[in-house]
Design a binder for these strands. Sequence first.
DNA 1: GAAAATCCCACAGATTCCCATGGACACCCA
DNA 2: TGGGTGTCCATGGGAATCTGTGGGATTTTC
Lengths: 158, 158
Amino acid sequence: MSQFKGTHLVRRDGKGRVSIPSAFRAVLKGDHPINGPLVLRPSHKHACIEGWHPDSFAAQGAQIDQLPRFSDEEDDLALALYSDAVDAEPDKEGRVVLPSDLAKHAALADEVAFIGAGSHFQIWEPQAAQRRIAEARERARVLRMTLPPAHPLAAGAK
Amino acid sequence: MSQFKGTHLVRRDGKGRVSIPSAFRAVLKGDHPINGPLVLRPSHKHACIEGWHPDSFAAQGAQIDQLPRFSDEEDDLALALYSDAVDAEPDKEGRVVLPSDLAKHAALADEVAFIGAGSHFQIWEPQAAQRRIAEARERARVLRMTLPPAHPLAAGAK
DNA sequence: GAAAATCCCACAGATTCCCATGGACACCCA
DNA sequence: TGGGTGTCCATGGGAATCTGTGGGATTTTC
């Protein structure tokens, strides 16, 4: 499966609909004949909405199954992940309505920013998105400096 | 996979398109039947655009998968890497449009320079490219004196 | 019944496809 | 060696397509 990349500005119409950027639609589509479905959930770290390919989202859930059964951790993660997630089916034009509670969580106005994050994408209020990206960039810079200067691919090795 | 080598001057047409130098196209192509896709992203060190073979770019993303899930580090790196990268599909003539924000980042005018950098290539404003190359050459010269005098042929050994 | 959600059609700007052209270079053959 | 020829490559531009957007009409929900 391909990755979500790039930043796309889109506007919300009177009915609360947004066009999913075509680049993202292509990722979501997979082998789906028309516009593929997706999973939306509020980020539990930031004021934004996360969008997932259903398969990737399911894969996240599978990670939880690896945890010790009945542990507090499993409980917490499962709820955090699933309790606020919703399935969304784009219309023929590739638009979805953003549920109002999610839109509120992300403080969305007329214009929203779709931001690729590889495995998933995020929906932000544009100004907030800019701030967040600047922050992420800076922290990534520091992070890289603290990583061993070995070959990048070896960085994650334990 | 082969490497990106050499410097090539190319001009941007009215639609913002540039021909990818055929030497680079060959590297990107791989086993792709027509012109292979590529990933463009702003360099976070220099005022230039980086061009990557999708596989090489994906390899960078792979280090993110090694990080603990839901960690801040994962979040930051994912955004830093993906939020401003774009997939580009060359047309039948081997041209791509350089997104305007990337072109702006690199301060591109009508004429642009493609510069091979081994694992990837860079797109510069020609004057800036010259300065950058001169600088790199000088620093490499100084560096070499401080590197261990290993046998040159051993360098590429895996 | 009213309100909300969904489907459907329309449109304009942007993007991509496709064909054409001219120059640079390599090759061939006398 | 030099002229001719063919191919490849960078470039240009017109036409068709796609994409994001708006809004009316129809269906669903309570």
